[in-house]
Simulated scan of single mutants.
Amino acid sequence: MTGQSSAGSDFEAAVAELRATAFRADITVREIPAPQSLAPRAIALAADVRPDESGDSVYGTGRFVLLHDPEEPAAWDGAWRIVLFAQAPLETEIGTDPLLADVTWSWLMDALESRRARHRAASGTSTKTLSKGFGGLASEGDGAQIELRASWTPSGPFRPHVEAWAELVGMLAGLPPGSEGIAVLGARKAVRD
Results as ranks from 00 to 15, higher is better:
Gly135Glu: 15
Ser179Asp: 09
Ser139Gln: 10
Leu100Val: 10
Asp10His: 06
Ala75Phe: 02
Pro160Ala: 07
Ile146Phe: 03
Met171Arg: 12
Gly124Arg: 06
Arg115His: 14
Lys128Asp: 15
Glu163Pro: 01
Ala187Arg: 04
Ile94Val: 10
Met171Cys: 01
Leu100Ala: 07
Glu93Val: 03
Thr125Phe: 06
Gly95Arg: 02
Glu12Thr: 04
Val58Trp: 15
Pro33Arg: 03
Leu148Glu: 04
Ala14Ile: 10
Ala122Glu: 12
Asp69Tyr: 00
Glu163Thr: 11
Ala183Met: 07
Glu71Met: 01
His68Asp: 00
Ala122His: 07
Asp52Glu: 14
Glu72Gln: 06
Pro160Asp: 12
Leu66Asp: 13
Arg41Met: 05
Arg188Ala: 09
Phe158Lys: 00
Leu137Asp: 15
Asp10Pro: 07
Leu185Pro: 10
Pro176Met: 06
Ala20Glu: 12
Ala16Thr: 12
Leu172His: 07
Val184Met: 02
Ser123Asp: 11
Ile32Ala: 05
Asp142Met: 02
Ala122Trp: 02
Asp10Leu: 06
Leu67Val: 00
Leu112His: 08
Thr125Val: 06
Ala86Tyr: 13
Ala121Cys: 02
Thr21Ala: 03
Lys132Ile: 15
Ser114Met: 12
Ala46Gly: 11
Val191Glu: 12
Pro177Val: 06
Gly8Gln: 14
Gly170Tyr: 09
Glu180Met: 02
Ile146Lys: 01
Gly135Phe: 14
Val58Tyr: 14
Gly124Leu: 06
Pro35Ser: 08
Pro51Glu: 12
Ala47Trp: 13
Thr96Ile: 11
Ile94Gln: 06
Lys128Thr: 15
Tyr59Ala: 06
Thr125Ala: 03
Val184Tyr: 04
Val162Tyr: 04
Ile32Thr: 09
Val29Trp: 14
Ile94Asn: 02
Gly3Asp: 15
Gly135Lys: 07
Arg19Lys: 05
Phe158Ser: 00
Ala22Ile: 11
Glu12Asn: 04
Leu130Lys: 04
Val162Thr: 09
Ala20Ser: 10
Gln87Lys: 05
Pro51Asp: 13
Asp97Gly: 01
Leu112Met: 08
Arg159Asp: 15
Leu168Gln: 09
Ala44Phe: 14
Asp26His: 10
His119Gly: 02
Arg149Lys: 07
Leu172Glu: 05
Leu67Gly: 01
Gly181Asp: 13
Gly178Trp: 12
Leu137Tyr: 15
Trp76Leu: 02
Ser151Met: 14
Glu113Asp: 11
Ser57Trp: 15
Tyr59Val: 01
Leu100Gly: 05
Ala150Thr: 01
Glu140Asn: 05
Gly178Ser: 05
Val191Ser: 05
His119Met: 07
Ile182His: 07
Glu147Gly: 01
Ser106Trp: 11
Ala46Cys: 08
Leu130Pro: 13
Pro89Ile: 11
Thr28Tyr: 14
Pro70Met: 03
